[in-house]
Protein backbone atom coordinates (compact mmCIF):
# COMPACT_ATOMS: atom_id res chain seq x y z
CA UNK A 1 0.00 0.00 0.00
CA UNK A 2 1.24 3.45 -0.89
CA UNK A 3 2.52 5.38 2.13
CA UNK A 4 0.88 8.75 1.30
CA UNK A 5 -2.40 7.08 0.54
CA UNK A 6 -2.30 5.30 3.85
CA UNK A 7 -1.46 8.56 5.63
CA UNK A 8 -4.54 10.23 4.28
CA UNK A 9 -6.72 7.22 4.91
CA UNK A 10 -5.87 7.27 8.61
CA UNK A 11 -6.67 10.95 9.02
CA UNK A 12 -9.65 11.39 6.75
CA UNK A 13 -12.54 9.96 8.81
CA UNK A 14 -11.86 12.18 11.77
CA UNK A 15 -10.91 15.27 9.79
CA UNK A 16 -14.06 14.89 7.70
CA UNK A 17 -16.18 14.49 10.81
CA UNK A 18 -14.89 17.51 12.62
CA UNK A 19 -14.88 19.47 9.38
CA UNK A 20 -18.63 19.01 9.06
CA UNK A 21 -19.73 18.96 12.67
CA UNK A 22 -17.15 20.95 14.51
CA UNK A 23 -15.07 23.38 12.47
CA UNK A 24 -18.21 24.72 10.87
CA UNK A 25 -20.01 25.53 14.12
CA UNK A 26 -16.75 26.88 15.47
CA UNK A 27 -16.42 29.18 12.49
CA UNK A 28 -19.98 30.24 13.20
CA UNK A 29 -19.01 30.94 16.79
CA UNK A 30 -16.09 33.03 15.61
CA UNK A 31 -18.29 35.00 13.22
CA UNK A 32 -20.94 35.46 15.86
CA UNK A 33 -18.43 36.84 18.33
CA UNK A 34 -17.99 39.78 15.98
CA UNK A 35 -21.64 40.77 15.93
CA UNK A 36 -22.10 43.46 18.50
CA UNK A 37 -24.67 46.10 19.28
CA UNK A 38 -23.44 48.09 16.33
CA UNK A 39 -24.08 45.28 13.85
CA UNK A 40 -21.61 43.03 12.07
CA UNK A 41 -18.65 43.01 12.02
CA UNK A 42 -17.71 44.80 15.18
CA UNK A 43 -15.30 44.41 18.04
CA UNK A 44 -17.90 45.52 20.61
CA UNK A 45 -17.97 42.23 22.48
CA UNK A 46 -14.22 41.99 22.69
CA UNK A 47 -14.09 45.55 23.92
CA UNK A 48 -16.61 44.73 26.63
CA UNK A 49 -14.77 41.55 27.64
CA UNK A 50 -11.19 42.80 27.55
CA UNK A 51 -11.70 46.55 27.83
CA UNK A 52 -11.08 48.77 30.78
CA UNK A 53 -13.16 48.16 33.89
CA UNK A 54 -14.08 44.62 32.82
CA UNK A 55 -13.81 41.93 35.46
CA UNK A 56 -13.49 39.21 32.80
CA UNK A 57 -9.67 39.08 32.58
CA UNK A 58 -9.59 38.47 36.31
CA UNK A 59 -12.10 35.64 35.92
CA UNK A 60 -9.99 34.18 33.12
CA UNK A 61 -6.81 34.32 35.18
CA UNK A 62 -8.62 32.77 38.12
CA UNK A 63 -9.86 29.96 35.85
CA UNK A 64 -6.44 29.21 34.40
CA UNK A 65 -4.72 29.52 37.75
CA UNK A 66 -7.20 27.06 39.25
CA UNK A 67 -6.75 24.62 36.37
CA UNK A 68 -2.96 24.84 36.61
CA UNK A 69 -3.05 24.08 40.32
CA UNK A 70 -5.23 21.08 39.48
CA UNK A 71 -2.64 19.94 36.91
CA UNK A 72 0.20 20.32 39.42
CA UNK A 73 -1.71 18.47 42.12
CA UNK A 74 -2.52 15.70 39.65
CA UNK A 75 1.17 15.39 38.77
CA UNK A 76 2.08 15.32 42.45
CA UNK A 77 -0.33 12.43 43.00
CA UNK A 78 -0.05 10.51 39.75
CA UNK A 79 3.69 10.52 39.08
CA UNK A 80 4.81 8.90 42.37
CA UNK A 81 1.83 6.53 42.30
CA UNK A 82 2.38 5.54 38.69
CA UNK A 83 6.09 5.05 39.40
CA UNK A 84 5.30 2.90 42.38
CA UNK A 85 2.80 0.79 40.47
CA UNK A 86 4.77 0.47 37.26
CA UNK A 87 8.25 0.04 38.64
CA UNK A 88 8.11 -0.98 42.29
CA UNK A 89 5.19 -3.40 42.50
CA UNK A 90 6.00 -6.86 41.25
CA UNK A 91 2.51 -8.24 41.08
CA UNK A 92 0.50 -7.38 37.99
CA UNK A 93 -2.59 -8.22 40.01
CA UNK A 94 -1.91 -5.42 42.49
CA UNK A 95 -1.26 -3.00 39.65
CA UNK A 96 -4.52 -3.92 37.95
CA UNK A 97 -6.46 -3.75 41.20
CA UNK A 98 -5.23 -0.26 42.09
CA UNK A 99 -5.88 1.08 38.61
CA UNK A 100 -9.31 -0.53 38.59
CA UNK A 101 -10.18 1.07 41.93
CA UNK A 102 -9.26 4.48 40.58
CA UNK A 103 -11.14 3.80 37.35
CA UNK A 104 -14.25 2.92 39.32
CA UNK A 105 -14.54 6.56 40.41
CA UNK A 106 -15.19 7.42 36.76
CA UNK A 107 -18.27 5.27 36.70
CA UNK A 108 -19.94 7.50 39.19
CA UNK A 109 -21.40 10.51 37.44
CA UNK A 110 -19.50 13.76 37.94
CA UNK A 111 -22.44 15.22 39.79
CA UNK A 112 -22.57 12.55 42.46
CA UNK A 113 -18.79 12.59 42.75
CA UNK A 114 -18.83 16.33 43.30
CA UNK A 115 -21.75 16.46 45.69
CA UNK A 116 -20.11 13.73 47.77
CA UNK A 117 -17.40 16.23 48.71
CA UNK A 118 -20.02 18.23 50.56
CA UNK A 119 -20.60 15.23 52.75
CA UNK A 120 -16.87 15.01 53.36
CA UNK A 121 -15.84 18.64 53.83
CA UNK A 122 -19.01 20.20 55.21
CA UNK A 123 -19.70 21.54 58.66
CA UNK A 124 -21.11 18.16 59.67
CA UNK A 125 -19.13 16.31 57.05
CA UNK A 126 -16.89 13.31 57.48
CA UNK A 127 -13.68 15.22 58.17
CA UNK A 128 -15.13 17.58 60.75
CA UNK A 129 -17.12 14.83 62.45
CA UNK A 130 -14.11 12.56 62.73
CA UNK A 131 -11.81 15.34 63.94
CA UNK A 132 -14.37 16.43 66.51
CA UNK A 133 -14.94 12.86 67.59
CA UNK A 134 -11.21 12.45 68.15
CA UNK A 135 -11.16 15.67 70.12
CA UNK A 136 -8.69 17.30 67.72
CA UNK A 137 -10.96 20.28 67.19
CA UNK A 138 -13.86 21.72 69.17
CA UNK A 139 -15.54 23.74 66.46
CA UNK A 140 -15.99 22.46 62.89
CA UNK A 141 -13.55 23.92 60.37
CA UNK A 142 -15.85 25.90 58.11
CA UNK A 143 -13.16 26.87 55.61
CA UNK A 144 -12.99 23.32 54.23
CA UNK A 145 -16.12 23.74 52.18
CA UNK A 146 -17.51 26.56 50.05
CA UNK A 147 -14.31 28.08 48.78
CA UNK A 148 -11.47 27.66 46.35
CA UNK A 149 -9.77 24.79 48.27
CA UNK A 150 -12.86 22.58 48.04
CA UNK A 151 -13.19 23.40 44.33
CA UNK A 152 -9.59 22.40 43.66
CA UNK A 153 -9.87 19.21 45.70
CA UNK A 154 -12.95 18.11 43.74
CA UNK A 155 -11.59 19.19 40.36
CA UNK A 156 -8.40 17.25 41.01
CA UNK A 157 -10.46 14.28 42.09
CA UNK A 158 -12.45 14.40 38.88
CA UNK A 159 -9.41 14.78 36.63
CA UNK A 160 -6.30 13.15 38.11
CA UNK A 161 -7.11 9.60 36.90
CA UNK A 162 -6.39 10.86 33.36
CA UNK A 163 -2.91 11.70 34.54
CA UNK A 164 -2.48 8.43 36.42
CA UNK A 165 -3.41 6.28 33.43
CA UNK A 166 -1.24 8.07 30.89
CA UNK A 167 1.78 8.28 33.19
CA UNK A 168 1.36 4.64 34.20
CA UNK A 169 1.28 3.59 30.57
CA UNK A 170 4.35 5.69 29.80
CA UNK A 171 6.30 4.25 32.74
CA UNK A 172 5.15 0.75 31.99
CA UNK A 173 6.82 1.03 28.61
CA UNK A 174 10.19 2.02 30.07
CA UNK A 175 12.54 -0.91 29.83
CA UNK A 176 13.47 -2.13 33.30
CA UNK A 177 17.01 -2.68 32.07
CA UNK A 178 17.59 1.08 31.94
CA UNK A 179 16.80 1.30 35.61
CA UNK A 180 19.01 -1.66 36.38
CA UNK A 181 21.81 -0.17 34.32
CA UNK A 182 21.49 3.11 36.16
CA UNK A 183 21.67 1.33 39.49
CA UNK A 184 24.62 -0.75 38.39
CA UNK A 185 26.42 2.45 37.52
CA UNK A 186 25.94 3.54 41.10
CA UNK A 187 22.88 5.79 40.89
CA UNK A 188 20.58 5.82 43.93
CA UNK A 189 16.81 5.35 43.58
CA UNK A 190 16.25 9.11 43.52
CA UNK A 191 18.78 9.63 40.76
CA UNK A 192 17.31 6.78 38.76
CA UNK A 193 13.88 8.33 39.11
CA UNK A 194 14.89 11.88 38.22
CA UNK A 195 17.43 11.12 35.50
CA UNK A 196 15.93 8.09 33.83
CA UNK A 197 12.27 7.47 34.67
CA UNK A 198 10.96 11.02 34.64
CA UNK A 199 12.47 12.09 31.30
CA UNK A 200 11.25 8.90 29.67
CA UNK A 201 7.77 9.35 31.14
CA UNK A 202 7.61 13.01 30.11
CA UNK A 203 5.37 12.41 27.07
CA UNK A 204 2.90 10.63 29.32
CA UNK A 205 2.94 13.46 31.85
CA UNK A 206 2.45 15.92 29.04
CA UNK A 207 -0.55 14.02 27.63
CA UNK A 208 -1.94 13.75 31.13
CA UNK A 209 -1.51 17.47 31.69
CA UNK A 210 -3.64 18.24 28.64
CA UNK A 211 -6.23 15.67 29.62
CA UNK A 212 -6.48 17.25 33.06
CA UNK A 213 -6.19 20.88 32.08
CA UNK A 214 -8.73 21.01 29.27
CA UNK A 215 -11.80 19.56 30.97
CA UNK A 216 -10.93 21.54 34.07
CA UNK A 217 -11.08 24.94 32.39
CA UNK A 218 -14.46 24.11 30.92
CA UNK A 219 -16.23 22.59 33.90
CA UNK A 220 -19.12 24.31 35.62
CA UNK A 221 -19.97 21.81 38.33
CA UNK A 222 -17.35 22.16 41.03
CA UNK A 223 -17.31 25.95 41.41
CA UNK A 224 -21.09 26.03 41.58
CA UNK A 225 -21.56 23.15 43.98
CA UNK A 226 -18.55 23.69 46.24
CA UNK A 227 -17.30 27.20 45.54
CA UNK A 228 -19.56 29.24 47.80
CA UNK A 229 -18.87 32.89 47.19
CA UNK A 230 -15.34 32.33 45.91
CA UNK A 231 -16.23 33.59 42.48
CA UNK A 232 -17.28 32.27 39.15
CA UNK A 233 -14.97 30.63 36.68
CA UNK A 234 -14.96 31.22 32.94
CA UNK A 235 -17.07 28.24 31.87
CA UNK A 236 -19.90 29.17 34.21
CA UNK A 237 -19.89 32.64 32.76
CA UNK A 238 -20.05 31.25 29.22
CA UNK A 239 -22.93 29.00 30.15
CA UNK A 240 -24.80 31.92 31.71
CA UNK A 241 -24.38 33.99 28.56
CA UNK A 242 -25.53 31.20 26.25
CA UNK A 243 -28.34 29.73 28.24
CA UNK A 244 -29.55 32.31 30.69
CA UNK A 245 -28.85 35.65 29.09
CA UNK A 246 -29.40 34.07 25.63
CA UNK A 247 -26.67 36.41 24.48
CA UNK A 248 -24.96 34.12 21.99
CA UNK A 249 -22.54 36.70 20.61
CA UNK A 250 -21.23 37.47 24.08
CA UNK A 251 -21.08 33.76 24.90
CA UNK A 252 -19.18 33.20 21.65
CA UNK A 253 -16.72 35.96 22.45
CA UNK A 254 -16.08 34.55 25.92
CA UNK A 255 -15.61 31.08 24.40
CA UNK A 256 -13.11 32.32 21.82
CA UNK A 257 -11.23 34.19 24.54
CA UNK A 258 -11.19 31.07 26.73
CA UNK A 259 -9.98 28.91 23.83
CA UNK A 260 -7.17 31.35 23.07
CA UNK A 261 -6.20 31.73 26.73
CA UNK A 262 -6.38 27.96 27.21
CA UNK A 263 -4.20 27.46 24.14
CA UNK A 264 -1.64 29.92 25.44
CA UNK A 265 -1.64 28.19 28.81
CA UNK A 266 -1.16 24.78 27.17
CA UNK A 267 1.74 26.19 25.17
CA UNK A 268 3.29 27.60 28.33
CA UNK A 269 2.73 24.25 30.00
CA UNK A 270 4.53 22.53 27.13
CA UNK A 271 7.52 24.85 27.47
CA UNK A 272 7.68 24.36 31.21
CA UNK A 273 7.36 20.57 30.89
CA UNK A 274 10.14 20.49 28.32
CA UNK A 275 12.35 22.68 30.47
CA UNK A 276 11.70 20.54 33.53
CA UNK A 277 12.41 17.36 31.62
CA UNK A 278 15.63 18.87 30.34
CA UNK A 279 16.52 19.83 33.88
CA UNK A 280 15.94 16.39 35.27
CA UNK A 281 17.86 14.48 32.63
CA UNK A 282 19.33 14.69 29.21
CA UNK A 283 16.03 14.41 27.50
CA UNK A 284 17.29 14.30 23.93
CA UNK A 285 19.51 11.29 24.38
CA UNK A 286 17.22 9.49 26.76
CA UNK A 287 14.19 9.98 24.53
CA UNK A 288 15.90 8.61 21.48
CA UNK A 289 17.22 5.69 23.42
CA UNK A 290 13.79 5.18 24.94
CA UNK A 291 11.87 5.22 21.70
CA UNK A 292 13.94 2.49 20.13
CA UNK A 293 14.53 0.65 23.37
CA UNK A 294 10.95 0.35 24.52
CA UNK A 295 9.91 -1.09 21.21
CA UNK A 296 12.60 -3.70 21.04
CA UNK A 297 12.09 -4.65 24.65
CA UNK A 298 8.92 -6.47 23.80
Amino acid sequence: MNETWRSWLSGTPWLLMIGCFFILPLAGLLLMSFSGEGGFPSLDNYRVVLGEGSDRPAVLLRTIGTALSVVLLSIAIAVPAAYYLAKCVLSARVQAAVLALVAVTFLVGPLVRTVAWRGILGRSGLVNTVLQGLGVIDEPIMALLYGRPAVIVAMTYNAFPFMLFTVFLAMKMIDDRYLAAGRDLGAGPATVFWRIVLPLAAPGIWTGAILVFVPTISTVLEPEILGGTSGRLAATEIRDQFFHALNWPMGSTLTIVLIVAGGVAILALALVTAALARLSGRIGIAMRAGSTGAGSAR
Binding site: G28, M32, L246
Partner: peptide, 24 residues
Protein backbone atom coordinates in the same frame (compact mmCIF):
# COMPACT_ATOMS: atom_id res chain seq x y z
CA UNK B 1 -30.66 32.90 35.82
CA UNK B 2 -33.42 34.67 34.10
CA UNK B 3 -33.41 34.78 30.37
CA UNK B 4 -33.04 38.18 28.84
CA UNK B 5 -34.92 39.36 25.83
CA UNK B 6 -33.23 38.63 22.53
CA UNK B 7 -30.87 41.44 21.79
CA UNK B 8 -30.15 43.25 18.58
CA UNK B 9 -27.80 40.46 17.63
CA UNK B 10 -30.68 38.07 17.00
CA UNK B 11 -30.87 39.14 13.40
CA UNK B 12 -27.16 38.88 12.85
CA UNK B 13 -27.24 35.41 14.30
CA UNK B 14 -29.65 34.34 11.62
CA UNK B 15 -27.47 36.03 9.02
CA UNK B 16 -24.40 34.26 10.18
CA UNK B 17 -26.15 30.93 10.23
CA UNK B 18 -27.10 31.45 6.63
CA UNK B 19 -23.56 32.42 5.75
CA UNK B 20 -22.23 29.42 7.54
CA UNK B 21 -24.67 27.12 5.83
CA UNK B 22 -23.89 28.52 2.40
CA UNK B 23 -20.20 28.52 3.00
CA UNK B 24 -19.86 25.08 4.38
Amino acid sequence: HLISAPGPWAQSRRDFLKTAALAG
